[in-house]
């Protein structure tokens, strides 16, 4: 409760400051392979958000594809899970 109040006061009465937004946006920017490489300060917040959306969509698609691939593999192969676990844990 109190932390909420103080946060909103600090940001000018329930207003999110541009600084806060910029801070969060640049945090997001670090995670985007597309933009991270550009390394220019010209990337706008809207641009970062757009790339974020694209990146999430592409990750969702990858999960879709991999699920399909795994379902095929699991239907055909015998249980080799012990080997998988071992290899994953050793990484």
């Amino acid at each position: 409760m109190s932390s909420r109040r103080s946060r909103s006061r600090q940001s000018g009465g329930s207003r999110i400051t541009d600084d806060q937004i910029n801070d969060l946006v640049s945090k997001l920017q670090q995670l985007l392979p597309e933009i991270r490489e550009r390394r220019s300060d010209k990337v706008s917040a809207a641009n970062v958000l757009q790339e974020t959306c694209n990146y999430i969509r592409s990750l969702h698609r990858e999960v879709d594809d991999l699920s399909e691939r795994l379902s095929e593999l699991l239907a055909t192969t015998d249980t080799a899970q012990a080997a998988i676990i071992r290899s994953l844990l050793s990484q």
């Binding site: 999960v63 998988i84 290899s87 990484q91």
Partner: peptide
Amino acid sequence: FEETAHYIKCLATQVKVMQDIADQL
């Protein structure tokens, strides 16, 4: 924004692990 940052990291990890398992199989 905070949740998005975390979500992205986890999704990327998820993709990577699924990839590894698929390669292994």
